[in-house]
Write a protein that binds this DNA or RNA. Structure first.
Lengths: 124, 124, 124, 124
DNA sequence: GTGGTCTAGACCACG
DNA sequence: GTGGTCTAGACCACC
């Protein structure tokens, strides 16, 4: 799968999964009608507890991204793309903005900050 | 004081205080030998719990930024400036890098990301 | 057939089938000696999984409503009518009672509750 | 407390808690600003697992009924009353309607159904 | 003390 | 096989 999780990221694990699934839908990596990995399978791949995955999937259903196909699993809703694109901008924007806001307040030299940013953007 | 705290920032409050004190030392707003506000005074100013301030001060002593002057309170250590400058680069760098890394992975268009960053840098 | 199933009803699908078969017997729509559709036929009609139908039929045999006639399928037992009438009162009564009990406990105005009930009874 | 839970109700336990808290707010039993019992306390009272209570409380926060006061617990939001009154009508209405719909379809005599309803309403 | 998160493992309903 | 619910118990952040 295209997901990876970092327990030390600060964000709760289930939230990392939620965000990444939304990003995948926004990018078109996950298309409407596609099934996501089963709870147990994704838990095994990410080496986390199935309950944590289940929690993420439940959030994604509440957010209108996934829908339960009884007995078969969860799939991406037909109307999820637009919502996910908007979500992506919101989620990424908030995190970048708050990081940069702290960077400015920290008194770090403009040059150093620019260097940090450019380095990161080039690293891709 | 020059500190401000945002409960919705994601970072724990005590950590926001720790980081901002370090930034203040790195910027020269707090100079070696300066006393920091008492636990209860800072707690009152920031409208947070004294225990939270105490925890931050404890962390700052462990990190070698503050030192206890018997009967007077806590003051900035003589040798704190260099450590704080390095710390600042590390803390800010890690947070900016991780925000930008997620932004890249999210598949957001380069243009949109650039716009987000520039907007934030101008806003200052 | 006279059965219809609603996945969003809250009740498990197999239970909806069990109840509706019992109601059909109580109403005389299904008479003792009548054969019920085969598992796969009913599954096709209701667009549900054959296992789900099989489970319902198994429950109905355990409840003494259906009986297996070797090689022919399942048919309504001769003595099923009385049991189904009693069952109907019990099943419907329990569900209505529990819905109304919650309605009362919820503090909803008597008038509003009456209106809800009358509207539903007229809609039929 | 004014809550009671029935594991055999059909509804998940966490959902019973969610509904009853909403009803309590709609009735004015819980007023904006009131604190709800702590997770651990309510779990002990209802003899259920704290995680189950936590799940209910989390749902209630997502629904805008409760808000977390850091370190102190959860309290009813100032603007929760109207939403809860609407929720109550919706939740109760759906359940009563679906029970009565099944009752009608079951072929139960009108008289019997009326008797069931009146008995339940008088029982209060 | 508070809620939030995570793990582990169980059982159920459904396909 | 699938997801949903529940229990049990742990650790963390915060007040």
């Amino acid at each position: 799968m295209f997901l990876h999780v970092d327990p030390a990221d600060g964000l709760p694990i289930y939230d990392q999964v939620v965000r990444q699934i939304k990003f995948a839908v926004a990018q078109g990596v996950l298309k409407p009608g596609n099934r996501v990995p089963s709870v147990r399978e994704l838990a095994r791949e990410l080496a986390i507890n199935p309950n944590t995955v289940a929690r993420a999937y439940q959030q994604l259903q509440a957010d209108g991204v996934l829908v339960n196909v009884r007995g078969l699993g969860l799939e991406v809703r037909a109307d999820a793309i637009d919502a996910c694109c908007a979500e992506r901008r919101r989620l990424v924007g908030a995190r970048v903005a708050s990081a940069l806001a702290e960077a400015r307040r920290s008194g770090l030299q403009d040059g150093e900050l620019r260097a940090l940013i450019d380095e990161q953007l080039r690293a891709s």
